[in-house]
Amino acid sequence: MTYKLILNGKTLKGETTTEAVDAATAEKVFKQYANDNGSDGEWTYDDATKTFTVTE
C-alpha cells in the first residue's frame, strides 16, 4: 500500500510517499525520514487516507 507523509515543519515542509506492508512499517520509514531532515513534532495518522502528518 502507498502511505503519504505531510510535513508541516518550521523549516521543512512538503509531502512524500512510501510503499509499505502496513501503517506501522510506513511510520518507521517516515519517522526516520523526518529525523534525518531535522523535523520533530506532533504526529497524527488518518487511516482512511493512509496519511501521516507531522506538525512542528
Score class of each variant (00 low, 15 high):
residue 1 M to E: 12
residue 1 M to A: 12
residue 2 T to Q: 08
residue 2 T to L: 13
residue 2 T to F: 08
residue 2 T to H: 06
residue 2 T to V: 13
residue 3 Y to V: 02
residue 3 Y to C: 04
residue 3 Y to S: 02
residue 3 Y to Q: 02
residue 3 Y to W: 05
residue 3 Y to D: 02
residue 4 K to N: 04
residue 4 K to V: 09
residue 4 K to Y: 14
residue 4 K to T: 14
residue 5 L to V: 03
residue 6 I to F: 06
residue 6 I to D: 02
residue 6 I to N: 03
residue 6 I to R: 05
residue 6 I to T: 04
residue 6 I to P: 01
residue 7 L to C: 09
residue 8 N to Y: 13
residue 8 N to T: 09
residue 8 N to E: 08
residue 8 N to I: 15
residue 9 G to Q: 05
residue 10 K to S: 11
residue 10 K to L: 14
residue 10 K to D: 07
residue 11 T to V: 12
residue 11 T to K: 10
residue 12 L to M: 13
residue 12 L to G: 12
residue 13 K to H: 10
residue 13 K to N: 09
residue 13 K to C: 14
residue 14 G to A: 13
residue 15 E to L: 08
residue 15 E to D: 05
residue 15 E to V: 13
residue 15 E to W: 14
residue 17 T to R: 07
residue 17 T to I: 07
residue 17 T to D: 04
residue 17 T to M: 08
residue 18 T to A: 07
residue 18 T to V: 14
residue 18 T to Q: 04
residue 19 E to S: 10
residue 19 E to V: 15
residue 19 E to I: 15
residue 20 A to H: 02
residue 20 A to D: 02
residue 21 V to W: 12
residue 23 A to K: 13
residue 23 A to M: 11
residue 23 A to C: 13
residue 23 A to F: 13
residue 24 A to T: 08
residue 26 A to E: 00
residue 27 E to A: 10
residue 27 E to F: 15
residue 27 E to N: 04
residue 27 E to W: 15
residue 27 E to P: 01
residue 27 E to C: 14
residue 28 K to N: 06
residue 29 V to K: 08
residue 29 V to F: 15
residue 30 F to M: 02
residue 30 F to H: 01
residue 30 F to S: 00
residue 30 F to W: 01
residue 31 K to W: 07
residue 31 K to N: 03
residue 31 K to V: 06
residue 32 Q to H: 06
residue 32 Q to W: 05
residue 33 Y to F: 11
residue 33 Y to N: 01
residue 33 Y to G: 01
residue 34 A to Q: 03
residue 34 A to L: 14
residue 34 A to T: 08
residue 34 A to M: 13
residue 36 D to N: 09
residue 37 N to M: 15
residue 37 N to T: 09
residue 37 N to F: 14
residue 38 G to L: 12
residue 38 G to W: 11
residue 39 S to P: 07
residue 39 S to Y: 15
residue 40 D to W: 15
residue 40 D to Y: 15
residue 41 G to P: 03
residue 41 G to C: 07
residue 42 E to R: 09
residue 42 E to C: 12
residue 44 T to H: 12
residue 45 Y to K: 00
residue 45 Y to W: 03
residue 45 Y to F: 05
residue 45 Y to L: 01
residue 45 Y to H: 01
residue 46 D to Q: 04
residue 46 D to T: 04
residue 46 D to S: 05
residue 47 D to R: 07
residue 47 D to A: 14
residue 49 T to N: 06
residue 49 T to H: 05
residue 50 K to R: 14
residue 50 K to H: 11
residue 50 K to L: 10
residue 50 K to M: 09
residue 51 T to C: 03
residue 51 T to V: 05
residue 53 T to G: 02
residue 53 T to R: 06
residue 53 T to N: 04
residue 53 T to M: 09
residue 54 V to R: 03
residue 54 V to D: 01
residue 55 T to M: 07
residue 56 E to N: 07
residue 56 E to C: 09
residue 56 E to S: 11
residue 56 E to M: 11
